[in-house]
Structures are given as C-alpha cells and as structure tokens.
C-alpha cells in the first residue's frame, strides 16, 4: 500500500465526496429525497420548533455580522418569525410579555418604535425559550435593533441630512 493510499484510508483525513457524473448526482438525489421525506414525517413538532428557533438565531447572527444597508426591517421580520414559531395567536405572546395586543400590533406594523421595556421583555422571554437547548446571547435582539437603526440612518442620509445640516455650525477653532 502506498503512503498516499494509506493516508486516504485514514478515517480522519477527510473525504472526497464529489459526484463523478450528473447521472450519479440525479440518481442519488432522488433516492435521498425519498428517504428524507419518509424521515421528515416522523419529525416531532418539538424538533421542528427547535429547528425554526435555531434557524432564527443563526439568521440574527448572520445579520449582525453582515448587516444590510437597506430600508428593510430585519428586526420586525425576526420578531414576527419568533412570535409565529411559538404562538398560534400573537395576542398570546402579548399577554405572556405583559403588553397589550394593540401595542404589539403597532410595533409589528411599524406604527410605533418598540420601547426600551419591550426590548427588555423580549430579551427575558427569549432567554427562557432558548434555555436548555441552544446558546442564545441575551444581547442579540438589542444588537439587531441598533444595527438596523445605524444602517437605516446611514443609508437614508439624503432624506434627513439637508434639513438637519442647515442648522449645524462649527464655531469652535480647530
């Protein structure tokens, strides 16, 4: 056995898993999909909820690492996804965090900004939900919210700058 062959039989060196033909890929894909669909039917509701919650956390992590400079509200999208994963009615979430359904609806529909207290309640609620199955940094909602504020402020300068800038003077001597 050559040195190279010995290396490749070592289970820990890694794996070459490239398809050798399109035919091989298609045939494998069909068989795999069939087996996966069978297994998916046995996936518990709890596992599906945990998968969705972990997906949400990973999407928030990614947004913090690579925030988009656009006017899209990622915070609200994440918030809606969080609530809808856990509750069939948003009013039940409002009750659980001791806010009125009306104020939750106003936040979700962008009719008002979330208050500091809302963010604190959301942080504590998430801590309790994620506890025991997934590491969830408590500051993550704050990070998403303020990253979005920064991104939106910077990308909307054309709108706010002229009005604000006309009142700004620098009288200090440099």
């Amino acid at each position: 056995m050559t040195e190279n062959t010995k290396d490749k039989l070592d289970t820990e060196f890694g794996v070459d898993s490239r398809y050798s033909s399109e035919k091989e890929r298609k045939s494998d894909a069909a068989a795999l999909m069939e087996a996966r669909l069978r297994r998916m039917k046995n996936l518990s509701k709890e596992k599906i909820t945990k998968a969705k919650l972990m997906q949400l956390k990973l999407r928030m992590d990614e947004y913090i690492k690579h925030p988009a400079h656009d006017n899209h509200s990622n915070f609200l999208e994440f918030l809606k996804s969080y609530i809808d994963t856990l509750y069939s009615k948003r009013s039940d979430f409002a009750r659980d965090i001791a806010v009125t359904s009306v104020s939750l609806s106003q936040v979700i529909n962008k009719h008002r900004e979330p208050k500091e207290e809302f963010l604190l309640k959301l942080m504590i609620h998430s801590e309790k939900v994620y506890a025991g199955f997934c590491a969830f940094p408590k500051e993550i909602w704050y990070q998403v919210y303020y990253h979005e504020k920064i991104c939106n402020t910077m990308s909307n300068q054309k709108e706010w700058r002229p009005e604000i800038e006309k009142d700004i003077r620098v009288s200090a001597v440099l």
Partner: peptide, 29 residues
C-alpha cells in the same frame, strides 16, 4: 430551516466512521 440536510458521498470505506461519529443516515451511497 426544518427541511435542512447536509450530505456526503464518501468513495472509500470511511462511511461507517461518519455514520458512527455524526450519527448520519445512509441512503444508497
């Protein structure tokens, strides 16, 4: 999300190692 899948298609006899270490499912190869 909940539909996610990661696949591998080892060409040598290392499949068992990945099945045992990462609890992977085997479908064909």
């Amino acid at each position: 999300g909940e539909l996610a899948c990661v696949s591998l298609r080892p060409k040598s006899q290392i499949a068992r190692h990945y099945m045992e270490t990462y609890n992977m499912n085997l479908t064909g190869l």
